[in-house]
Amino acid sequence: MDILIDSLLAILTIYLAFRCMLAPKLSKAVFVFFAFGLMLALAWIRLGAVDVAIAEAAIASGFMGVLMLDSLRDFSLIFSKNQERLEETASKIPIKKDSYHWTTALALGLGLILFLLISIQAIWEVPQGGGLTAIAEANLPMSGVEHPVTAVLLNYRAYDTWLEIGVILMGLLAIFAAGGLKQYRKPGLAPAQDPLLRKTILIFTPVLFLFGAFLLYFGKMGPGGAFQAAVLWGAIGILLHLGGWTVFTVIPRRMRQILVTIGLGFFMILGFTQMATGGAFFEYPPAYAGFLILVVETLAAISIAAALTAIFAFLTK
């Protein structure tokens, strides 16, 4: 029964990926992408990686999907102006049905074969010892948390997580540098004024906040943590924005900058303090490790949530 579900999931995932890439219309590609993200999240759950599943569903599928939907609306507004002209030109040019060149097909085929060979080899040589799991679990009492994944992310390999927060900040800076994209607001239609939508968003806000806080705290003992919590908190910001409360843009500029950078900053200061007191970079003293990790996670979550909201807010300005 298990193998049936798993193979169905695998086939569906690959099928949806192909449909997404080969979709004739942008809108179709975006909606297939949602379905693809859902399948991928389910696949992660089947593999036992609930952390990754939550992150996949929330960030990769949810947040990216919302951004894509948003840009889709802009594209459709830009194109609807030129559509008649486009259709005219399209009817004049004979459409080439056979657009797949044999070189592309050959390259794709070769790549697929190579990929299959590599994956077969990888499956063949699964490490028997279970990798580093034993070491990670042996050192759990000293890490300050009770879940091996959280211990790896925020203690053993805190450096990676720190840089990941930096990557999100870099993305935000790139968006700021590129400037807001929106100039094509359709007049008249303002979903922000819809009373039902606003009411629903107000109902969802505390639920999302509570669930995010739960994931953040629960990360100590089980799957969950800063990134997952941050997406839920970021979702609050995005929902409020969609409902017409421009929460992020009314916060003073200085405050915003602090909100966005506090996670990265505190993490870095903590790392250097540990170095100054004689430890290694990100070597928590075992007695305070649990508390410090919780503080770092909370601030990181606030920062990431603020960054996600800012990305959305400034793209929709």
């Binding site: 239609l189 979903p191 819809d194 939508l197 629903t200 969802f204 639920v207």
Partner: peptide, 24 residues
């Protein structure tokens, strides 16, 4: 309950959008 809430709201929004488009 949460799924009910969100699916009801989203289909209401889709329907409203369609109606306004038809009207215009």
């Amino acid at each position: 309950i949460l799924t009910l809430l969100s699916s009801a709201t989203s289909s209401y929004l889709i329907a409203r959008f369609q109606r306004e488009q038809e009207k215009s």
